[in-house]
């Protein structure tokens, strides 16, 4: 994917998208943040513990979650699983240095992970994945809105239909 396409994809994305970053390593959060601050206008939220991230997710907006795998108390897969309860449409990305791909792939299937990125990561690649995730998030959101609109229209239509039927009967 070239930079043009990235720009194109970015045009789908709302500039105020909220991205959650969870890692027990402060330096990872810092480097992710400095990169994303430079290249995007995302609303970044960093957490060093899964518990703090979950607490924020109780009532804060969440569009994409990027999480480490190995963390104290709770691992990344568990954390991302918990996120799907509250924010089922937010794409979830696992950023892991742990080489156990099997469990990561299983997690992708089990909890419907959007992507799995290995540490050390490539910033450009990370950005593409994030944009794709947000695009999907946007598309899903739009789709939901359209479906709701259609539902509403269909409701109206069926109301009309009922009216017509009642008029005739």
């Amino acid at each position: 994917m070239n930079d043009d396409s990235i720009q194109e994809a970015a045009s789908f994305v709302e500039s105020d998208a909220t991205v959650l970053l969870v890692d027990d390593e402060e330096m990872v959060l810092n480097s992710l943040q400095s990169f994303l601050e430079l290249e995007t206008e995302y609303n970044l939220r960093s957490f060093t513990t899964p518990a703090a991230a979950l607490e924020y997710a109780m009532d804060g907006p969440v569009d994409v979650v990027v999480s480490d795998f190995l963390m104290p108390e709770m691992n990344g897969i568990e954390l991302l699983g918990r996120f799907s309860e509250k924010h089922p449409h937010a794409p979830r990305i696992l950023l892991t240095g742990y080489a156990d791909k099997d469990s990561a792939i299983r997690a992708i299937n089990d909890i419907g992970l959007f992507q799995f990125i290995e540490k050390p990561w490539d910033n450009t690649n990370l950005l593409v994945v994030l944009r794709n995730a947000l695009e999907r998030r946007y598309l899903v959101k739009t789709l939901q809105e359209k479906i709701a609109e259609i539902d509403r229209a269909q409701g109206k239509l069926s109301g009309l239909q009922n009216d017509i039927l009642r008029t005739f009967i």
């Binding site: 390593e25 330096m27 990872v28 810092n30 480097s31 992710l32 400095s34 990169f35 430079l38 290249e39 190995l70 240095g97 742990y98 080489a99 290995e118 540490k119 050390p120 990561w121 490539d122 910033n123 450009t124």
Partner: peptide, 23 residues
């Protein structure tokens, strides 16, 4: 395996930081 994981964290940071500096 543990060492690889341990090294990947600072290596990721380093690579990312180098990229940020470059950009």
């Amino acid at each position: 395996a543990g060492l690889a994981h341990e090294l990947n964290t600072p290596l990721g940071t380093l690579a990312s930081s180098v990229d940020v500096v470059e950009r």
